[in-house]
Design a protein around this nucleic acid. Structure first.
Lengths: 198, 198, 198, 198
DNA sequence: CATGAATGAGTTTTCATTCAT
DNA sequence: CATGAATGAAAACTCATTCAT
């Protein structure tokens, strides 16, 4: 069924990316065949190749689209009124469901792909730059301690998040993970926030 | 290479596991072929099948043997004289090289294997049990605060470690990661230790 | 590009044939996709199928049109004032560029197609018939020896041409080929011409 | 069925090359699938890949083995007692059957492969070098004219052969081709031989 | 008529696994 | 026991062809 709608191509790509994201996330890059994705879409293998020249390219695009989502979300929280929301179990809950729909091993596959690594580093760097810029404002507003080493906290939070998510996927108890997140994140944020919280 | 000695079988298995660990760690489960492993050993593919009925089984055994190594190491540190050694950059350094030689995606492969997941949970549980038992002693000795929620710290440390290691493999700056580890681990340990440290 | 004029159909076919000829010649039948041809024309794949029911049919028509061109040229030379022009390096030069723009492997593809082979044989036969008829005139005019076995010379020249062209495409030195053509063609023509030349 | 005979591997390769030569010759490179070749051998596709890492490589080896055969034969004739045997219809007959079992389009496929072209040029050059060296002897023995331009004759003969073979495959009458070969080859050889022949 | 999205059969290639020697 | 040749099932990718718009 040819579709002559102008933006159809973009929509088709998007649909494929979504299906692929689901498939990669659930079964991993290697366990997912182009056939799987096509079937998920109710479409023939060949159709996918009209939009992505290879499985690698599809993966790359899937990954990038996921990264963009991640970045946006992190930024929005940082810029929100209540920075301590980050330390809530609710926040971590959304992380879990998002990660579940993203797939850890996509990161590992990505880690083997130089092009992806470069891009990812770039995205993280930009994200970090925006973060520190915003932090400067918060310091001026007296929300964050002037002396705070924000980099450490930032990296600590991200590592904690990733590590806890991994543990959940590897079978750890979810409520333990959530509680851990809440406590440790609070601890970290209190290191930099002026007004103590518990 | 001796070939007919009685305990030869066990030694042969061990040699295969070692080679497979190296191969899996370096290239990941899917990128490693039985041929690769056989070649690494200077042995024929068929020989491997004498000891392991499938690639999956070999992986399982490789993984299990790796977990045992990990557990031992973690325990030994906890039981050591200086619990704060954990928070040192040096400690993290050894983690990096060990992880590099183990391979992150082995965990992910494992995460898809129910048998492995169960076993892993069991190992972690036992490890945690030993840990808490030991902690009880330390509380009695006045080293650790009576009120400390040691579970949170334990899980936090492990998550932090895994998250930072991931970030390093994904291209993050190693010295940033080490510094983050040192600061945050100290923060966490100070939560439970009676004698404060910086 | 006009699209609804009556004779448009014929012109469109011609345009497609020209583009296809270029594509087939440059890359060979199998290395040329319908997409390639369509792209070369700035037209959609589907459009080609409006005029040619299959790739094979398109090839057939391309080939036939090429054969007609060839025949015409050969005839015109034979009928020209200076039959020895054939033996010149200049003549061979034009052959090279023509062959380059036609493609050797089109002949081979053709050789597998019975319909093409039949048609080709027919065209060559007609060409040969015209040639011998003309030769009869030349014999009467005393230009060609009465005793000459013109068939041998004709076939010899064509074979020599094709063989030398092949060698050039396979990497032989062009000036060697041209010189060989000039010498051997002269030798052959002198066999049948009354007035000797060097 | 594993075969532990030492030279088995070489024999297996040879068998595959022979089957592939037949298949390529009959149907051309592109029309021949690895399946075809495997079937011809009564073997699985995978088996071929144990000996040749790709279809291209197999083709390369097929081609090279064919070239070696060709070179040897040409040399043996040149060095034979009766150089004029080359001009016989019988000689051409053997050429036809050999070419039939080799396949013209292998040359064309080869013409697109730089590695093959290079190798081919090298083989031809060596062959030509041996030829000219031998010719020097023949000049000294008074068999060949001192003034003869042997290069032209050599290239002329090869081109004639290739061209006539092509024509036969493209449907020309075989006996016409043979006769043409006999006449023109004689003409060419008489150009260089001291003792005239008819 | 023209378009180009979709199809699906075909092709190359890989690799875990088996088994005759 | 060890070997490695052979298998066969899968996977990625291509492309002539069709057909709804």
């Amino acid at each position: 069924m040819p579709k002559v709608i102008p933006e159809y191509k973009e929509k088709a790509k998007q649909r494929i990316i979504e299906a692929a994201t689901r498939a990669f996330a659930q079964n991993g890059y290697h366990q997912t065949s182009m056939d799987n994705i096509a079937e998920l879409l109710g479409v023939s293998k060949g159709a996918i190749y009209q939009y992505f020249k290879s499985k690698q390219q599809l993966f790359f695009d899937v990954f990038q689209s996921a990264l963009i989502v991640q970045k946006d979300e992190v930024m929005s929280i940082i810029l929100s009124d209540n920075p301590l929301y980050i330390a809530s179990e609710e926040f971590f809950e959304t992380k879990i469901s998002r990660a579940r729909s993203f797939g850890l091993d996509m990161f590992l596959e990505a880690a083997r792909n130089e092009a992806i690594k470069t891009r990812m580093t770039k995205i993280y760097d930009r994200s970090y730059a925006e973060f520190t810029k915003h932090v400067e404002d918060l310091k001026n507003q007296g929300v964050i301690k002037r002396s705070a080493d924000v980099g450490v906290v930032w990296r600590g939070l991200i590592a904690l998040r990733d590590g806890l998510l991994s543990s959940v996927f590897l079978g750890a108890d979810t409520s333990d993970a959530k509680k851990t997140w809440q406590k440790v994140a609070t601890l970290l944020l209190n290191e930099i926030l002026v007004k103590e919280t518990g």
